[in-house]
Simulated assay, not measured.
Amino acid sequence: MTPAAFGIARQLVLDRFPDTRAAWLGGSVVIGTATATSDLDITVLLAGPPAPYRESLRHKGWPVELFVQSENSIAHFRAADQAARRPATARLIGRSRILLDADGSGERLREDCVRELSAGPKALSDKELQAMRYGVTDLLDDLAGAQDVNERLAIAVTLWQATSHLLLTAAGHWSGGGKWLHREVAHFDELGGTTFASALADGMRAVALGEIRSMVDIVTAVLDRVGGRLFEGYRANGPG
């Protein structure tokens, strides 16, 4: 991260939020994965209104995403992220540089988010695992039976997402969405010496070129790690 990015982010917070309790700069510019289109992800902690809200803007040549929070809203979003096993809020604060810390809450909340990230998500229940195995199995059958090339590609993308999420959460690893889903699978590979991230990506590319075998093989390998395919005998009860 360049000193200029840090200084621009800090001054923006000072100018717009003079009563801020704390502020953090997170995202790609901090963790070292920034690209030419990366923005400044700034989380701001206020004592109350106008928080919480989110705003997108451009400041001194940088696209900026502002996440203006209260302690209650941070707790709300962290709980929702924990339930989804996708720790977006904890990442933004836990993997950050502190811009301002007026009352110690900046360091306190960052350390708390670091502990949350290190602990990992809650374990899947048997019901959740069965539902995910069934969903991936169903998509795999759809891929095998699809005749339209565009349908196959759409199924392959959805199958990549569902398989990656199954792989990660069944192993007690955080998941994500979009680029973060790929990054989490790559991190999983680094920890375990596996190659699922590249194999799943190669499988999608192969489907785009008209070949499904490699995608079928890698998805089947993931299913085999968590109990195998599941269709016959699967039952999900409705509400009430």
Rank of each mutant, 00 (worst) to 15 (best):
A4W: 10
R97G: 06
V149I: 04
T195N: 15
R10L: 07
R95L: 12
G228I: 00
D15H: 11
T137R: 00
P18D: 12
D39K: 05
T2F: 01
D224G: 04
V226R: 07
V185Q: 09
I31P: 04
G94S: 08
V29M: 06
S214L: 07
W24P: 02
L166N: 08
N237G: 14
T43E: 08
F6T: 14
V216P: 00
Y134L: 12
E116P: 02
E184W: 06
A154K: 00
E65S: 12
T158W: 01
A236Q: 15
A75R: 03
L92T: 11
Q82L: 10
R229D: 07
N150P: 00
D126H: 07
A170I: 03
V30M: 02
I212W: 01
G27Y: 03
Q161C: 10
L166H: 08
A34F: 01
D142L: 00
P50D: 04
S56M: 12
D41P: 05
T89E: 10
K122W: 00
V44C: 08
A221S: 15
A199M: 12
V68C: 07
D141S: 11
N72E: 13
D189E: 02
H173L: 08
A197V: 09
S214G: 12
A221Y: 08
G172L: 05
S105Y: 02
T35V: 03
